[in-house]
C-alpha cells in the first residue's frame, strides 16, 4: 500500500517546499495565514494549482451584479420599504416589498445569485452571508432590517484577481462536489476565522469558563462550528481540511490511498 500517491503536484512541491513552518502568532494576527495563501493563489492564477480551462468562458459569461437595480412595476411591491445598505463594499439603495428576505433581495433584485436557497427556513446554511462581520442566514433576515448594514457575500470575498485564502483552500481540498452549499460554507468558514481569533466558545469547547483567547481549532471544533452548513454531497472531511489549512497556513495533506 502506498500512501498519498498524489499528495502534491511537482509544481506545488517546488513552491511549498520552502515555506517556513508558521508561528501560531501569525495565525492569531490575521485569523488565518495570508502569506501561505498568497503563494497558493499565485499558483491558482498561474493555472497550476487549479487549471480552470473551463472557467474563462463561463467566468465572464454572466454579468454578476446589476449596477442599476431595475425598478419593479408598482403593483409588484406591497408595503414598500426603502433600504440602503452596503453589499460587498458598494452601496445599494432599493425599494423592496417588506416581506422580501435578504436572500431574495440579493438573488432576485441585486443579481447576486451566489448565495443559495437550500431550504428558506434556517435549516441548511446555504444562504449564509456575513452581515456586519457576523455570519447569519440571509433567508431568515428581512432585507428591511439591513438598513445601514454591511453585507458580504461569496461574490465579495475575492479581491480583484486574488481569491480569499478560504476559497483557495476549498479548491485545493475539494471541499465540495455539486458546489451548491459552497458559497454558504465558505462565508461561514471565513467568519469562523474571526470567531476563532476572538476566542469564541462552541459546544465542543471543554473549558468554557476559561478566559477567551485565540484558538487554533481542532477537527472536532471545526466540525461542530460548521455544522450549521449542511452538505448533502458529504464533503465534510474536505471542508474540515480546508479550514484547517486556511487557519494554520500549513499544508494539510490530502489522503487518497492506492493498493500496490
Amino acid at each position: 500500500m502506498k500512501q498519498n500517491k498524489t499528495q502534491l503536484t511537482p509544481e506545488e512541491h517546488r513552491l511549498f517546499g520552502d515555506l517556513m513552518p508558521e508561528e501560531l502568532e501569525e495565525v492569531i494576527q490575521s485569523g488565518f495565514n495570508r502569506r501561505h495563501f498568497v503563494k497558493l493563489m499565485g499558483l491558482a492564477s498561474a493555472g497550476l494549482l487549479a487549471s480552470y480551462a473551463l472557467g474563462a468562458e463561463q467566468l465572464f459569461a454572466r454579468a454578476v451584479e446589476t449596477d442599476e437595480i431595475p425598478d419593479l412595476i408598482p403593483n409588484a411591491i406591497e408595503n414598500g420599504v426603502n433600504v440602503t445598505f452596503k453589499v460587498n463594499s458598494s452601496s445599494k439603495s432599493i425599494l423592496i416589498d417588506s416581506r422580501m428576505t435578504l436572500l431574495d433581495t440579493l438573488r432576485e433584485r441585486i443579481g447576486l445569485t451566489g448565495s443559495k436557497k437550500g431550504c428558506d427556513h434556517g435549516q441548511c446554511g446555504a444562504c449564509t452571508v456575513i452581515v456586519d462581520g457576523h455570519r447569519v442566514l440571509s433567508c431568515l433576515t428581512l432585507a428591511a432590517t439591513c438598513q445601514g448594514k454591511s453585507v458580504i457575500t461569496i461574490e465579495g470575498l475575492a479581491k480583484e484577481n486574488e481569491l480569499n485564502p478560504m476559497q483557495a483552500a476549498f479548491l485545493k481540498h475539494d471541499g465540495f462536489q455539486c458546489g451548491f452549499c459552497t458559497p454558504g460554507q465558505i462565508c461561514s468558514a471565513v467568519a469562523l476565522m474571526k470567531e476563532a481569533k476572538e476566542g469564541q466558545a462552541s459546544f465542543a469547547t471543554t473549558h468554557i469558563s476559561a478566559d477567551a483567547k485565540p484558538i487554533l481549532l481542532s477537527d472536532e471544533e471545526i466540525a461542530e462550528r460548521m455544522s450549521g452548513n449542511i452538505c448533502r454531497c458529504g464533503a465534510y472531511p474536505n471542508i474540515v481540511a480546508a479550514i484547517k489549512e486556511a487557519q494554520t497556513g500549513k499544508n494539510v495533506p490530502q489522503n487518497w490511498l492506492f493498493t500496490d
Binding site: 491558482a44 487549479a50 487549471s51 480552470y52 480551462a53 473551463l54 472557467g55 463561463q58 467566468l59 454572466r62 454578476v64 447576486l112 445569485t113 451566489g114 448565495s115 457575500t153 461569496i154 461574490e155 470575498l157 475575492a158 481569491l163 476559497q167 483557495a168 476549498f170 479548491l171 475539494d174 465540495f176 458546489g179 459552497t182 458559497p183 465558505i186
Partner: peptide, 10 residues
C-alpha cells in the same frame, strides 16, 4: 476545473 466557479459563487 470548474471549482473556481463554485468557490466564487459564479
Amino acid at each position: 476545473i470548474d471549482g473556481i466557479l463554485k468557490i466564487t459563487g459564479k
